[in-house]
Structure formats: C-alpha cells, structure tokens
C-alpha cells in the first residue's frame, strides 16, 4: 500500500470514528448494520471475487453465527468465546458443504448453498426447543469488556468498528499473502494455477470456508446489536442481498463489498419517500448496472478514470468474475 492510499484509509477510519457522534440511536444502528454486513460481504467476496465461487448461503451462515452466539451468551458464556465458537462452527460447515460440491462442476456450489440456506431456515423455524421457532430468541445481552459496557448504542458502534477494522486488516493481509494470490490465480486461470502447483480444490474449499466463517462472525455481531433474532432475518432473500452487495460494489476489489454494503443498507433510507416502489427501483438499478458494467461500481469508476488517464482496465478483471 503506498502512502497516499494509507492516508486515505486513515481518513476513512477517522470518518468512521466521527460519524456517529451527535447522531440518534437509529442512525447509529444503521451504521452498525453497515459495518456488520460489510464483514459478511467481505467474506463472500473472498469466495466470489477471489476464488470465483458463488455462495447463496451467506445469510444462513450469519444465522448460524447469530444463533450460536445468542445461545452461548444466554447460557453465560462470554462473547469473546462465543463468537470464535460460532466462526469455527461456520468454518466446519463450510468445509462439509463445500467438499462434495467442489468435487464436481463449477456451478454446483451455488445450488448446494441454495438448498442449504433453505434447509437452515427450516431448521431454525421448526426446532423450537433450541431456536425458539418462528418467535425467535429474545433478550440477547450485549457483551462487557473489562468494564467497557457495550450496552449504550454508541459504545456498541465502537465495539463493532473495532472488530470491523481488525477483520479488514486480517483480510488485507490474507489477500496479499501467497494464499490470496493463489485464490486470485485460480479465479483467473485454474488450469495454469494448477500447473503451477496450486491445489485448486483445496484452495477453493478453504476460501469458501473462511468466507463462511466471516459470515458467522457477522452473525455473532448482529445478534447482540438487535438483541432479538428470528429465522426470516437469515432467509435466502438476505443471502441474495449480501451477494448483491458484493457484486454491486465490485467483486474482487478490496473495498467493493464495503461500498456495496453501504449502498444496500443506506439506500432504503434515501428511497424511503418512494415507499412500496423501493424494491422495484433498486432491482431496476441493479439490472441496469449489470448490463452497463458487470464489474460493479468500483469497476465503473475505474473505467471512467482510465478513460481520462488513458490507463487500461485491471488485467485480471477483463474477463469478469466467472461463476
């Protein structure tokens, strides 16, 4: 990262620290859910943008993370242990789901995850003894850290922000490590990557499992934010929403999902005056964006920038991410 970008990132973090000051509870809530969905979308970006696999179960992993965290914290386990447990669970489920799906043709993970997200919804709704059924779980406590109580909305925001920055740093490190380069290599040209000694299946599986674990972490943050969870919050529709975040922002770009999550979360607030037409306008916008520029908003921005500077489009995205 060069120094200009470093300054931009520091300014961004400073803006995130200053953003909630003087705002009401609702605005802070919207900011929190932006950060949380950014984490889930970053995880999906690893699966989709870097390893080139479509997962339609990111919200289901959020659900598993949220229910695990909620059940553990309500049983008296501290969040700091509950959240990693949720992530490990999602990681393992990711491995179990991905192993057979990645054995066969490339688009199968999409269908397996599609089925999995519906199954998760059914289990969450029907197993009342564990999940509370369609009534959900109520009264999830927000964690305390050495006297720092996250109960006030502003405190919870800073807690979420800290987790977000930590995850973003680790993610940045991951995608710039040899692993991250291997992920990209198998998206761009799997045969060549394979010939250079990258174990395609193992790396794809790993990317999917890590992505799923990040979904679990997002769920672990979402449960104490809302303090109430029920199955519809993690349905297939929300998985599609997270997928849209990644693609609209720009899959395969580090900041793409963060931008995309911002748009998907904040847009309803701006389009509130349109009332029932909101989803229609939104869907139409996505449709047009996909037709005009399939690399998402960041790709669109780069396209304009390169026209002025005369620079070519990033080579690894010329072909577009493939299913």
């Amino acid at each position: 990262m060069n120094s200009r970008n470093l300054i931009l990132v520091l300014v961004g973090i400073a803006a995130l620290i200053a953003a909630p000051l003087g705002q009401g509870n609702y605005v802070i809530y919207v900011l929190c859910s932006w950060l949380i969905f950014s984490i889930a979308a970053m995880g999906l970006n690893l699966t989709l943008g870097y390893a080139g696999q479509v997962s339609l179960a990111q919200a289901a992993f959020m659900g598993i993370g949220a229910y695990t965290t909620a059940l553990l914290t309500m049983a008296g386990v501290h969040w700091i242990f509950a959240a990693p447990a949720a992530m490990v669970l999602c990681f393992v489920i990711g491995l179990v789901l991905g192993y057979p799906a990645l054995r066969v043709q490339h688009h199968f993970l999409a269908f397996v995850t599609l089925a999995f997200s519906t199954l998760t919804f059914l289990v969450l709704r029907n197993e009342e003894w564990l999940t509370g059924g369609s009534l959900g779980l109520v009264g999830i406590m927000r964690p305390k850290f050495l006297g720092f109580d996250t109960m006030p909305q502003l405190h919870f925001y800073y807690f979420t922000l800290a987790v977000f920055v930590l995850v973003a740093l680790l993610f940045w490190g991951l995608v710039h490590s040899p692993w991250g380069r291997a992920f990209k290599a198998l998206r761009e040209n799997p045969i060549r990557a394979n010939s250079l000694g990258v174990d395609i299946r193992r790396m794809t599986l790993l990317a999917f499992a890590i992505g799923s674990a990040l979904g679990g972490l997002a769920g672990a943050l979402a449960a104490p934010l809302v303090q109430f969870i029920d199955p519809p919050a993690f349905s297939l529709m929300h998985s599609l929403k997270i997928l849209l975040m990644v693609v609209v922002g720009g899959s395969g770009y580090f900041f793409g999902p963060i931008l995309g999550a911002g748009l998907v979360i904040v847009m309803p607030e701006f389009l509130r005056f349109t009332e029932g037409y909101y989803l229609m306008i939104y869907a139409a916008m996505v449709l047009v964006l996909m037709i005009v520029c399939p690399t998402g908003l960041i790709g669109l921005g780069r396209k304009f920038a390169s026209q002025f500077k005369g620079r070519s489009v990033r080579g690894d995205l010329k072909e577009g991410a493939k299913l």
């Binding site: 688009h107 997928l243 139409a284 037709i291 493939k322 299913l323």
Partner: peptide, 24 residues
C-alpha cells in the same frame, strides 16, 4: 449485452429481474 462477461452478471441480473417482476 451480458454474455461476453461470463455467467455471474447474468445470475445477478436475473435475480434482480425476478425481484423487479415480483414487486411490479
């Protein structure tokens, strides 16, 4: 218009199209 860009944009666009039709 999306065919040259691979399958992913088509997946996203048809998801959006489905929502659009439903809401309309």
């Amino acid at each position: 218009p999306m065919l040259p860009h691979g399958t992913l944009p088509i997946v996203m666009a048809t998801i959006a199209l489905g929502i659009l039709m439903k809401e309309t």
